[in-house]
Design a protein around this nucleic acid. Structure first.
Lengths: 200, 200
DNA sequence: GTTGCCATGTAAATGGTTACATGATTGG
DNA sequence: CCAATCATGTAACCATTTACATGGCAAC
């Protein structure tokens, strides 16, 4: 956690600097703040933890790290492992300020679910009744499988901090809710009225 | 007036042709199948309907439409409005096949929530207890406001079809669930154990 | 006669992914 | 010694966004 002094300095700055960050930049800053020190480690952490609500690929991480270093938000240190090169990153004071700035400002970007299954559901009208049912069934199955994976992960206790765990619990809860939602829709599609909402 | 080369791509029925589509291409195909005939109308429909789970911007729609026409998946017809040019699109037989192909194949792309609030929650550990609470509170407020908007839309608007309505109902349900989830988290942050993992 | 909506498009820039390329260390 | 993993980076490509540019039509 940051000190009170940092907080005061940030308020004094009154800054919108976080708007210049790309989403990859934000994740990088957060991950470095948590203590993940190399590009490789950050990539692994993203795969373990944030992939389901925001991903980043390795080809974007190294240039992203370089950019943050050029902007003075992170400090890069050579940290060779034997003969193998390795760089260790940590936040600078201004990097901490920008991260805090982002975290404490209200979100502006609209949420985009990016759920292909939901997009298919949106267009399911063009399909036959059987195919429509299959779209919903598959959507439910995906959520069930995802929920199972997340439950396992939560049981294994592999978490850096309580908010890491909390965001995974959110993911699990959402998948469980969605699975039930799909079940309910399947019932209403199966029984009697195949077209519940339209008055056709 | 319709240049339709169906015979070639009708082969593509049992194929993976839908994988060559971009996500914008998929939405375009779906929208045209529903009867939205101009780029402008499709844009408006995306804003009204799919924006929250998959967006597309006007600068990508016209080139996308052109590309689909070049690939023979849609047929373009001149449909002038007085002196003003206008193009009307409809699916070709192969366009229908590719759309159906996509809709009936299991989803491969992983879901990415793209929820900035959730990303902030993930990194909230670096903040003070008060600021952490504020992150969750703001997240809940956003979901509440979104739910209110969607409720209004469901009450007031005409929907093209029942799956249009259904996907909006999904969105509403998710927002309601998330709002409640945030409320529960706020309670657990407020009372007793603000931070079970670190020795606060 | 001007505002606002309908309508279409292009160009530049951004941001990201995939594939390529390299090489060291660790463990079986 | 071989495979997996750790580790870093670049280059080509791609999709998408933003800004620009144009113009007709309708209504007030």
């Amino acid at each position: 956690m940051f000190s009170v002094m940092d907080s005061v300095a940030t308020n004094a700055q009154n800054s919108d600097a976080h708007r210049e960050l790309t989403s990859t930049g934000r994740i990088l800053l957060g991950m470095i703040a948590e203590g993940h020190r190399t590009g490789y480690a950050i990539k692994a952490e993203i795969e373990r933890s944030t992939r389901h609500f925001w991903g980043a690929s390795i080809g974007g991480i190294y240039p992203g790290l370089k950019r943050l270093a050029d902007e003075g938000l992170v400090a890069r240190e050579d940290d060779p492992r034997g003969e193998g090169r390795r760089h260790s990153y940590q936040l600078t004071v201004s990097g901490e300020a920008v991260l805090r700035d982002w975290l404490t400002h209200p979100a502006e970007e609209p949420v985009e679910l990016r759920d292909e299954g939901l997009l298919k559901l949106r267009f399911a009208e063009v399909l036959t009744p059987d195919e429509r049912t299959a779209v919903v069934r598959r959507m439910g199955i995906r959520h069930r499988e995802q929920a199972r994976r997340l439950r396992r992960q939560l049981a294994a206790r592999e978490f850096d901090d309580s908010f890491d765990r909390l965001s995974t619990e959110y993911l699990l809860g959402w998948n469980e809710w969605a699975e039930e939602w799909c079940d309910r829709v399947l019932e209403s599609l199966g029984t009697g009225e195949p077209d519940p909402a339209s008055g056709k």
